[in-house]
Structure formats: structure tokens, C-alpha cells
């Protein structure tokens, strides 16, 4: 049984401008000790979906299920959910400075986390806070435990957040862009730390990022999201070498190292749609180089394609059209042209 199984999750918000459909039917599963990467541009619904699962979105309309060890988190009572939050599912966030309370000492904040879930004395909890800070590589933790967050550097703050998140040895860690706000060198250290602790504690990780480099580094399976929908879901190798969805291809194509020195950076033309007015059909079709007539009319479902063992993609291109080599790209363009001309013939 999977540790977490999310099925057909929808999240929408009422705004003065209409209903904002932030997440429109995503499903995924995380096994114990496994790492799931969720990739997408900002506004693709990746943070909203994970925050909804642990009950952190307010004022949203939610449907679907999210079973954690068999129990649906979305229908749990607030008090029941509170015992899961922090203890079983812990989270770290993008900006460690704003995520730590500026008025409380770092140690106090870790102690509070421990004592919210376990009946231990303050002294005992503090001892554990010092141990945890040492574990995540804070130098002289017995002194730094009494520092305020602003006395820590960016990397140390994220280390402290990780120490807090792992304080109760959770089964699942949701890392929401944990390195985005950090310097590149610090990013690598934090990723190494997460990997080390994951191995040590056997924690499953959901790594939310817009950085495919991080996915390559840590993820077992990957879900690519766009405009609140899953576009592609597969294992890491397949994603890089045999992607099916043109959006995934675009993301990989826009990585700097592709093509080596001197070749221009590719980018996906256009901008993601507003979640208030998502285009009909495939949400990506206005930006897609392979768009066919069908793409504008019918929304493609997630279906099995031929890249990997469990490889699903929401695209009307034929299931076997996977890969990023020039051959494949040409084939896809050919297929797309056929898709367009056949429709023209029909209408003629």
C-alpha cells in the first residue's frame, strides 16, 4: 500500500473575478521512503495541492480523496488532522526567513513542535532540539539553539526548518521549493542534507520545484503540472530521455546545458493561462508547437504511453511518440501536421 494516495483532487477558490480553479483533478501516489517530484511553473497548482492535502488551504472548495496510510486526510476532523500535521507529515517551505517566527528563538520553535505532539518536559525537548540542530549541521548547536532566526544565515535557517520538520521523525516530508530562495552553493548543501536524512530516517519526500536539475538529483517519480492539471507522470529516467508531453519536452529543452556552449537558450513561447479562464481543450495548446485541431476542442485525459513502465501523459499525440531526439521531434511535427490537415480535409 502506498503511504499517500491522492485521487482526483480538485481545489478551487471563489474570487471577486470568478472561480479560480487552482487544481483540476490530480492523482498520484507516494510509497514509503520514495521521492516524488512535482514540477511546474509558478501558478501550476503544485503548492496548492500539497497544502490542501494537509489542510493548510483556507476558504477553498475541495473534492477528491487523499489517503494517508488508508485514512482520508480531506474528510478528517481538524483535531485528527492536527495530530498528523507536523508529526506524520512535515513541511518545509521556500523562504526559510519568513517561515520561521521572527520573535521566537530557533530552539523554542523546535521545542514547541516537539511538545505539540509528545508529552515531554521542556528540558528533554530542548535537549532534542540541540541534537537535531547538530544533526542538520548547525555548528555549536548548544549555543545557536538560543539564537533568533535573523541571526542565522539563509542556509542555516533552512537547516533549522529541516531540523524542526524532522523532529518527530515523520513518514512524509513535503518540501515546497526548499532551495529556491538560497544561493546555488547552499542549494547543493541543502539537497545533500535532505538526501542524507531521507536515507537515514526512511522518510518519503514530495519535492516541489520548478527546477528540473533538482528533480534529476533526488526524485524517483515525477509529476509535471501545468495550469492545475497533471501533464505527465513517470519515473525520472523516462522523463528525461523519453518524454511524451510537449510541455515536458519544452521544460527539458529550456535547460541551459542542452546543446552545449554557444547554442541559444530555448524557451516555451507565451505565458501560462490565467486559472480564472483556462482555455478549452488542452490547457497547453495555445503554446504548443505540435497543437492540432483536436487539442483546442477536447481535453486529453491522462493515458498510458510507451516510454516507461508506468508512464502516463495528457496529450493527444500518439502514445508511441516519446523522446527528445531530432528524429522524434520531426515525427511529432509530421503527426501534428497530419492532425491539422486531416481536420481541414474533413471540414472541406
Amino acid at each position: 500500500m502506498s503511504l499517500l494516495e491522492v485521487d482526483d483532487l480538485h481545489v478551487s477558490f471563489s474570487t471577486p473575478d470568478g472561480v479560480l480553479r487552482a487544481v483540476r483533478g490530480i492523482s498520484f501516489a507516494v510509497d514509503p521512503g520514495e521521492t516524488l517530484g512535482i514540477v511546474g511553473e509558478s501558478g501550476s497548482g503544485k503548492s496548492v495541492s500539497t497544502q490542501t492535502i494537509v489542510g493548510l488551504t483556507q476558504g477553498a472548495r475541495i473534492s477528491g480523496t487523499a489517503r494517508f496510510e488508508g485514512k482520508d486526510l480531506l474528510t478528517m476532523s481538524e483535531s485528527e488532522l492536527r495530530t498528523v500535521r507536523g508529526a506524520e507529515i512535515a513541511m518545509i517551505f521556500q523562504d526559510p526567513l519568513s517561515s520561521l517566527h521572527p520573535h521566537y528563538r530557533v530552539g523554542w520553535q523546535i521545542v514547541e513542535m516537539i511538545r505539540a505532539h509528545e508529552a515531554v518536559s521542556k528540558k528533554e525537548a530542548r535537549k532534542r532540539a540541540v541534537e537535531l540542530l547538530g544533526l542538520v549541521g548547525i555548528p555549536s548547536p548548544s549555543q545557536r539553539v538560543d539564537d533568533f532566526p535573523h541571526q542565522f544565515s539563509g542556509g542555516m535557517r533552512q537547516r533549522a526548518m529541516i531540523a524542526m520538520a524532522l523532529a518527530l521523525n515523520p513518514k512524509l516530508l513535503i518540501a515546497d521549493e526548499p532551495t529556491t530562495a538560497l544561493d546555488v552553493t547552499v542549494q547543493a548543501q541543502i539537497m545533500a542534507l535532505i538526501k542524507r536524512l531521507q536515507k537515514e530516517f526512511g522518510t518519503a519526500v514530495i519535492m516541489i520545484t520548478h527546477d528540473l536539475g533538482i528533480i534529476a538529483d533526488i526524485a524517483d517519480r515525477v509529476m509535471v503540472m501545468y495550469a492545475g492539471k497533471p501533464m505527465e507522470y513517470t519515473d525520472k529516467r523516462t522523463l528525461y530521455h523519453q518524454p511524451h508531453h510537449p510541455y515536458t519536452e519544452g521544460l527539458i529543452g529550456s535547460l541551459p546545458q542542452q546543446g552545449g556552449r554557444g547554442s541559444p537558450l530555448k524557451s516555451i513561447p507565451g505565458l501560462p493561462p490565467s486559472l480564472l479562464r483556462v482555455p478549452k481543450g488542452c490547457p497547453f495548446h495555445p503554446r504548443c508547437v505540435y497543437a492540432m485541431d483536436r487539442c483546442a476542442g477536447e481535453e486529453p485525459p491522462m493515458r498510458q504511453v510507451s516510454g516507461g513502465l508506468d508512464h502516463r501523459s495528457a496529450c493527444w499525440l500518439p502514445p508511441e511518440a516519446v523522446g527528445t531526439t531530432t528524429d522524434i521531434v520531426v515525427t511529432r511535427q509530421e503527426l501534428a501536421r497530419q492532425g491539422r490537415s486531416s481536420a481541414q480535409e474533413e471540414s472541406a
Binding site: L56, E78, R85, G86, M91, F93, S99, L100, H101, E112
Partner: peptide, 22 residues
Amino acid sequence: GEDYIRTARAKGLRKRRVIYRH
């Protein structure tokens, strides 16, 4: 609306504690 309030809630603290202490 601050991030550290989200952290406090993510820690599984009681609502009253999140509102008053944090």
C-alpha cells in the same frame, strides 16, 4: 497571511495557539 503562520499551522499547533502565541 505571513509564512511563519503557515509554518505554525503546519506544525500541528492548536488554532488558539496559532492565533495568540504566533
